[in-house]
Design a protein around this nucleic acid. Structure first.
Length: 112
DNA sequence: CAAGTGACTACAG
DNA sequence: ACTGTAGCCACTT
């Protein structure tokens, strides 16, 4: 995987590669794509992800603290948490529990 | 064209 | 440890 002309698409690809029951962070994705300071761009990409097909599991992407910073961008404020819990990820107070255990870093599991 | 905004992070106080 | 400030980049107004 390399940085393509379509940054958003690359972001979506990585997000789709996140295994079931795992989560990753904006910064990790940005780093994997080489956009070292592009965490905000990843977030911006997620802003448009809802319209992307196939479906992009944006609920598996949280900020570096494991907090559900983007829950308000889902249809319902609780949709993100519901989806995560459905995958076996425990969420409390808009924050992923055992974040370190469910965290999935593309830099460690994917090859560039 | 300049200024504001945000699904982020890192560093400083 | 907690809170505030400042870079960051694309997009909107």
């Amino acid at each position: 995987m390399a940085i393509g002309p379509d940054f958003f698409k690359d972001v979506y690809d990585v997000v789709r590669l996140v295994p079931f029951g795992r989560v990753t962070s904006y910064g990790a994705i940005a780093a994997y794509l080489g956009a070292k300071s592009g965490a905000r761009m990843v977030g911006y990409a997620m802003n448009a992800a809802h319209a992307e097909l196939p479906y992009v599991p944006a609920h598996r992407v949280v900020n570096r603290n494991g907090m559900l910073s983007g829950k308000h961008h889902f249809g319902s404020p609780d949709a993100m948490q519901i989806l995560l819990e459905k995958e076996g990820i425990k969420v409390e107070n808009d924050q992923v529990l055992d974040f370190e255990k469910v965290f999935w870093d593309p830099n460690l599991h994917l090859s560039l």
